[in-house]
Design a protein around this nucleic acid. Structure first.
Length: 606
RNA sequence: GGUGGCGUAGCCAAGUGGUUAGGCAACGGUUUGCAAAACCGUCACACGCGGGUUCGACUCCCGCCGCCACCUCCA
């Protein structure tokens, strides 16, 4: 198997991945998560999805991954912010109605994010991980850890308290500041974009603790005011002597949360730290500086190995950053109408975006909605190291691409059957084994090459194309299915519900016997509810269409009902009444079921 | 101004000093009662422009042109 290599932002090099774990098994990963004062947009999603692909690739390589994705819910909300939250957005308005309790608003958006994250199949929100608060730590619940770190920074001489009661990190005390981002301190100083404050010793110094009466979340480090009781108890335990008396009630600066939470939940050293490219500076640069000062860490050398002779331990061994998603080759912009939240694409009409829904329908999206697996596929099919140019057309391309893989998957499942066929226990042909092995190797080497998802996807399409030219028995299909399952452990774009079925010609022949068909029909719920069954049957025999609205509402189409429709249609086909036959197929289509004639019989797909 | 990056056929997008990326779209064909799905073929001797190095460059070097991002508590 190929070896996983990752581009480390810190060294600017492609490095072979080696975990810190001496047994080479466990990997810790910290992903900078969402700020929950708004709905996540597809740019956020791309960033989280690349982290998800990285995590799954690690797992594919046999590692046990512990991934933490923080929730930034702290401190920066003001009354103005609430009043301005999202303009016309219905859910934002609903959030505002929650009142001026910023914790409730943050929770509301966090729930919304968790919903999107599950829809996008982020593994860190699947299964038991979804409900584990240690994997989704909230900044507001880690104030003790942050104050602890701040106090350490003051005591170690890396931070200072100013008259206002705020605390700043003194950048000049950390010579490595700027090394991750390649920034030159002198240039930063020259830039006029750093917040100008008279009480800062240096304009580049950044805030660890802020004081601003306008902000809605406030903690008093010298009393219980503003605290969650449990957090306050932990704070007293962590800092029995309290913090520097000059620090006033306020809230933590943005950067300190990740230093504090990664340490709290993943320990002193983490293997991989991920984020968007905008996190490189200043956020991650500041994290490195903070952890260096507070926890005596470092980030030296390739593979995160400390310099020779250093007593310090590494903070993050690999820094991996995803590039931005662009729309029309520009950064997303609300003004240009190129800003899409996940919710808007998944359910435009539900978000009041009828215009978007109509556009999507024009591009062939049923109901004007983008299926979540299509959005996922679109956002992972470009390499994370390149800016991705997103468009609705790219979504349409993703849809047909996913459908191609899905169709092969469905057909394989049909071919495998329920396992009762003794032929399925046979050994697959050498040709098939070879195909599977080669495809797996191609997929692996693409992913392991710094998560080259375009090549990984190409390997999938290549395999699908080859499988499409082959006639597969149960044993062959079983192996092929295993291959697609294996791909999908990483890509996770397939619909695994029983969404298709195969009806053989022999079966239909039996059902076309009036007695059998009637028996079958009686067994069907909706048919049974029809008052005049005899009359209905007579109409079918006469080649007339039954009242579909009565017999089969869209939401109740199941396999049995489809079979009945197919029988009716076949009845018409046998008597060359293609008008009726096509009408039945159209009716099925309207109910979301596509019907295909195959050599063996009839295949339906929901 | 500083830093990093990008320009590949209609669109998206890999990759490489000399031999197929892949997907989507379009068109033609096979198949079908018609479809669908699938297959085959075409579009594709594509690599922003101009020089240079080389037996040979899309790939390396130099210079242009165009575009983008970061330097703002934006993934």
């Amino acid at each position: 198997m190929s070896v996983l290599k990752l581009k480390n932002t810190y060294t600017k090099r492609l490095e072979v991945f080696q975990p810190l774990d001496p047994h080479g098994k466990r990997v810790t990963m910290y992903t900078c998560g969402p700020t929950v004062y708004n709905f996540v947009h597809i740019g956020n999603l791309r960033s989280f999805l690349f982290a998800d692909i990285l995590r799954r690739t690690l797992e594919r390589n046999g590692y046990e991954v512990r991934q933490v994705m923080n929730i930034t819910d702290v401190g920066h909300m003001t009354e103005d912010h609430l009043a301005d939250a999202g303009g016309e957005d219905k859910l934002a308005v609903a959030a505002r109605k929650l009142g001026s309790d910023p914790f409730k608003v943050a929770l509301h958006f966090e729930d919304a994010f968790a919903h999107d994250a599950r829809a996008m199949r982020l593994r860190v929100y699947q299964g038991g991980e979804a409900g584990d608060p240690a994997l989704h730590p909230r900044a507001t619940r880690h104030i003790p850890e942050m104050l602890h770190a701040i106090q350490r920074l003051i005591e170690e001489g890396f931070a200072y308290v100013v008259d206002s009661g705020e605390v700043y990190y003194e950048v000049s005390k950390f010579p490595e500041y700027g090394r991750l981002s390649g920034k030159v301190l002198e240039d930063l100083e020259a830039g006029a974009r750093v917040e100008v404050r008279d009480d800062k010793r240096d304009p580049r110094d950044f805030a660890l603790w802020k004081v601003d009466a306008k902000h809605l979340m406030q903690w008093d480090p010298h009393s219980e005011k503003g605290w969650d009781p449990a957090d306050y108890a932990r704070f007293r335990e962590l800092l029995p002597a309290g913090v520097d008396q000059r620090i006033r009630a306020g809230f933590p600066g943005w950067h300190i949360e990740c230093s504090a939470m990664s340490r709290a939940h993943l320990g002193h050293t983490i293997d991989i730290h991920t984020g968007g490219e905008d996190n490189i500076f200043p956020h991650h640069e500041c994290e490195i500086a903070q952890s260096y000062g507070a926890f005596k860490t470092c980030v030296h050398g390739p593979h995160g190995a400390p310099d020779e002779g250093s007593q310090r331990k590494t903070f993050a061994r690999y820094w991996v950053h995803g590039r931005f998603l662009l729309v029309n080759n520009r950064k997303m912009s609300k003004r240009d109408g190129t800003f899409y939240t996940a919710k808007e694409l998944l359910d435009p009409r539900g978000q009041g975006r009828d215009d978007l829904a109509n556009e999507l329908e024009r591009l062939g999206f049923a109901g004007g909605k983008v299926p979540a697996n299509v959005l996922r596929f679109a956002l992972i099919s470009n390499q994370y190291t390149q800016p991705m140019n997103f468009s609705l057309e790219s979504l349409a391309a993703a849809r047909t691409g996913v459908e191609r893989i899905q169709t092969r998957f469905d057909k394989l499942r049909e071919a495998v059957g329920d396992g009762t066929n003794p032929a399925s226990n046979l050994t697959a042909s050498g040709h098939m084994i070879e195909l599977v092995n080669r495809a797996e190797a191609e997929f692996d080497s693409a992913l392991n090459d710094n998560l080259n998802t375009p090549n990984a996807v190409a390997a999938v399409f290549k395999a699908v194309g080859e499988l499409n030219t082959m006639h597969l028995g149960p044993a062959e299909a079983r192996e092929a299915m295993r291959l697609l399952d294996s791909f999908d452990e990483v890509l996770d774009v397939l619909d695994r519900t029983e969404r298709s079925g195969l009806i053989t010609r022999e079966q239909i022949q039996t059902w076309l016997e009036p007695a059998t068909l009637k028996q079958k029909a009686v067994a069907l719920k909706h048919w049974a509810e029809t008052t005049d069954r005899e009359q209905l049957w007579e109409r079918i025999e006469a080649g007339q269409l039954p009242d579909f609205e009565e017999t089969a509402p869209v939401e109740d189409m199941d396999g049995a009902m489809v079979e009945l429709f197919v029988a009716i249609r076949q009845n018409a086909r046998m008597s060359k009444d293609f008008k009726v036959a096509d009408a039945v197929r159209d009716e099925l289509k309207r109910r979301g079921v596509a019907l295909e004639d195959t050599a063996q019989g009839f295949r339906w797909v929901r």
